[in-house]
Amino acid sequence: MKGTVKVDESLCKGCALCIPVCPKGLLRVANERFNARGVHPAELDDPAELCTGCEMCAIACPEAAITVFRAVKA
């Protein structure tokens, strides 16, 4: 795994601005569920572990809801 992101769903307003900026299209709106705000939150959908931790989604997020992790070089 090169990287990953975590969406703090307590902050997410479901604006979906993070979705189109992901170069690999790994983020989605969780249309099947709601967060405590009553919106469909964004979530990472990355079964193949393609996320590189490029930070684009975090930069686009108006709520500072996305934490980005990257693998440390050994």
């Binding site: 990953t4 307003k13 604006c15 500072a64 996305i66 934490t67 990257r70 693998a71 440390v72």
Partner: peptide, 25 residues
């Protein structure tokens, strides 16, 4: 999520943890 992963972007210390009143987007 894994010990080898390190946060490279996280919630700024200079923001409080109060959710904003701004509209989505």
């Amino acid at each position: 999520p894994e010990p080898l992963l390190t946060p490279v972007y996280q919630y700024p210390e200079s923001l409080t943890h109060v959710p904003t009143h701004y509209c989505p987007g």
